[in-house]
Design a protein around this nucleic acid. Structure first.
Ligand code: MN
Ligand code: MN
Ligand code: MN
Ligand code: MN
Lengths: 220, 220
DNA sequence: AATTAAATTTAGACAAATCTAAAAATTTGT
DNA sequence: ACAAATTTTTAGATTTGTCTAAATTTAATT
């Protein structure tokens, strides 16, 4: 597989949310930052290779084989991201671009060793699950902060938007993975919320709240 | 620069032994395992970009800029090789192919961090010098074992042939970098030699002896 | 149901990197 | 010095991945 083919598979995987839902040509084009006509071309090639199911005008979905391949790339991407953060002291907003390159390195044993070096991690620096050798990954209950009841509590476990600008915004406000969050109040008018974090209470906009994943505390 | 362009620059660099000697089209073709006509094409592209000096039928040489680029790739290749050996427990015969891929990862800061993680090393797992950020590398006196006088002593510091088969052969005979070597005897007839290593004396063929680099012990 | 709008595909072009076969230049040998 | 051998370049084709512009299909609206 070429880098481009791998990138398309990964893109389709993300759009179909892992499932085998059909994805539209235009959706792929904007995901991959390319033109619909290029997508059609590539999708035909992938279909030839048995990696996607494609019916003209009806969208594409990953085959079993395509899905396996996509998961391998996702696994590599996330392992490399974690490596960069854990072993080379990168910040979580600096690793994605480099991992976009590293994910294409072909070596089964390299990835196995990396996995071992990192102690077989379950999640990447952004809280996304890392598939294991067989493509299986841990799931955990999580809700968007904006969808949490008032009052309630939970742990901050992931970001929906993982753009560098958003991540740096979170850094600035000391919002980091693993921290405990209490939901204090929700404003009807603009859907902004008051939360407590590190003992300190403050207000965040709906925009922010709808990009943070919270693992709700079990309520007995 | 594309991967292919980078590979050509590195190939030309190795053939011209770092200097600005002109290299023949056929030489490049066999180094790169490609056809002379492909070399001519690529060399024209590189010339357009100011990375090589090229005069038809007269061979190519790296420009200042081309040389800088080539050294960057060599630096990355060797740092990655050392990383694989030091941090991921690869053997010295398993790292080259993976480093061939990793050397193309584009990120200045990544290489700086890797360099720091490895403590700013001077030599790679095969005894080849690692250029620093500015392309400068340590040189050390070294001679082919086959060229050493009898009797004499030195340290095994590098291999000329770094093919996996040769490296595994060395492993089998417990010939490893840094070990002390005594040259005991040289055979006129077939140029084989008797040497002592790890206290044990044995005979090696000329083929072997002419692929091992020795740093001669200073004789006062 | 017909028209309009949107999504998708096709046709044709282009750059990069490669190849084979043929032509041209250089080098070698007598 | 000149023919033969070798090296190098050119010409033309192919694959991959992309694009623009035009045609086609599907979806939405009157
Ligand atoms: Mn990422
Ligand atoms: Mn991530
Ligand atoms: Mn190497
Ligand atoms: Mn090496």
């Amino acid at each position: 597989m070429t880098h481009s083919e791998e990138n398309y598979l990964k893109g389709i995987y993300h759009l179909s949310k892992g499932g085998s839902v059909a994805v539209a040509t235009n959706a792929i084009a904007s995901q991959m930052d390319t033109k619909p006509s290029s997508v059609t071309d590539m999708v035909k090639r992938l279909s030839e290779k048995g990696l996607v199911d494609y019916r003209k005008y009806q969208g594409v979905s990953l085959t079993e084989s395509g899905s396996r391949q996509a998961l391998k790339i996702v696994r590599k991407h996330r392992l490399w991201e974690l490596f960069l953060v854990e072993k080379l002291d990168f910040k979580w907003d600096q690793v994605h671009e480099i991992a976009e390159q590293l994910e294409h390195i072909e070596s089964e044993v390299l990835i196995d060793r990396l996995d071992a070096l990192l102690n077989y991690p379950d999640f990447d620096p952004h809280g996304d699950p890392i598939p294991d050798k067989n493509g299986v990954f841990k799931t955990r209950e999580k809700k968007l902060l904006s969808a949490m009841p008032v009052p309630s509590e939970g742990l901050f476990v992931g970001v929906k938007d993982s753009s560098a600008t958003f991540l740096r915004f979170l850094d600035k406000h000391r919002i980091a993975l693993g921290k405990k969050v209490s939901i204090l109040e929700k404003e009807e008018f603009d859907h902004s919320m008051r939360i407590r974090l590190d003992g300190e209470a403050f207000r965040i906009s709906h925009q922010i709240a709808s990009n943070l994943y919270i693992k709700p505390n079990a309520v007995p």
